[in-house]
């Protein structure tokens, strides 16, 4: 930890936060918010939590910003500003200051930053640090805690994303009549934003992005990364295609039906592996029992393989749902024309 660097990053973060709230153009707000996320990701990395930084970069600074921009394009860039101080604003200010003071009071009792004697580094961490390899044979402790020790949380986090996908679909998706559909096909042939240079560059970029995403998923056991990050990058490659070409190019490669099925399949792989463990006679998500059906695998290695399985499930689910959310957001739910 280099305090000069921290100071700069933290100052910039606070500036970004103020700018996001006060800027009058929502598109600028979305972009500044992306910058805010990127600075957060620098901060996480600088604090040594590389996995969190990676996730923040992929989710917060990456697709999060794209979603915000898509939402702004579909609604409005203008914001109604009310400069007058009304009672509800005053109460809000009071509540926020009160919470700030309370949090500062609590801060006084916290152990120092990165204190090796703090309860958080004394209590459970030593067990994970010394035993992860012996118990799960996965070198990246973050992965083993995420996908195995607390794998049940991660399963429901994937389910949260699944729920978000279904929720966006349920709220935004609009059905269309047959005639309307034919008209749309006839009218939608002309393309508005054909730009040769951008399209060519993105066409070269997409395969590398997808390859990198697969690497991130597969290498999550050994280095920062895993299903969430890899899935988001995979999804982002499709979103990039959709931005530079059009919605139809992407829908030709992955139809809505496939998208829904893949989203389900991903979460199902995760929960299904859990159920498989149960059927084989152990507790839910106890991967060690998978050694019964995996050839030449010890219970410890089975845990490692089980984690790889669920990471793949997470990646598939996250990819499909990111694409689904973006498609619905950018086309206003009718899947006819993107941005």
């Amino acid at each position: 930890m280099i305090w000069q660097l921290d100071l700069i990053i933290l100052t910039l973060i606070i500036l970004c936060a103020f700018a996001t709230i006060s800027v009058q153009d929502l598109l600028s707000a979305a972009i500044i918010f992306g910058a805010y996320s990127f600075l957060m990701c620098l901060l996480w990395t600088e604090m040594g939590s590389v996995d969190v930084g990676f996730t923040e970069a992929a989710v917060g600074a990456g697709v999060g910003t794209v979603f915000c921009i898509a939402a702004v394009f579909q609604t409005t860039r203008k914001v109604k500003v009310d400069h007058q101080m009304n009672p509800s604003k005053f109460i809000g200010l009071l509540a926020a200051s009160f919470i700030g003071i309370v949090l500062l009071i609590a801060q006084g009792d916290f152990p120092a930053w990165a204190d090796p004697d703090s309860p958080a580094s004394r209590y459970l961490s030593p067990h994970f640090i010394t035993n992860t390899i012996a118990e799960t044979s996965v070198p990246n402790i973050v992965t083993s805690v995420l996908a195995d020790y607390r794998g049940f949380d991660t399963m429901f986090e994937t389910a949260v994303i699944f729920a978000a996908g279904v929720a966006v679909f349920a709220i935004l998706r609009r059905g269309r009549g047959k005639e309307e559909n034919d008209q749309a096909v006839a009218a939608g042939t002309e393309d508005v934003n054909q730009d040769l240079i951008i399209q060519w560059i993105c066409r070269q970029l997409v395969p590398f992005m997808q390859l990198f995403a697969l690497y991130v998923v597969a290498h999550g056991h050994h280095s920062p990364g895993g299903g969430f990050q890899g899935g988001v990058i995979l999804g982002a490659s499709f979103i990039l295609l959709q931005l530079t070409y059009d919605l139809k190019t992407v829908l030709q490669r992955m139809s809505e039906r496939w998208n829904v099925l893949l989203g389900n399949l991903g979460v199902f792989i995760y929960a299904g592996i859990g159920l498989l463990c149960l059927v084989l006679g152990a507790n839910f998500l106890d991967y060690s029992v998978l050694s019964k059906i995996l050839p030449a695998t010890s219970p410890i290695m089975a845990r490692s393989h089980g984690m790889l399985g669920i990471e793949i499930g997470v990646a598939i689910a996250v990819m499909a749902i990111m694409i689904g959310i973006y498609t619905n957001l950018s086309s206003h739910g009718d899947h006819e024309q993107g941005l």
């Binding site: 195995d148 020790y149 060690s288």
Partner: peptide, 9 residues
């Protein structure tokens, strides 16, 4: 869940 004893699991 996952067969891990609390508080680890």
């Amino acid at each position: 869940l996952g067969g891990w004893p609390p508080p680890f699991g």
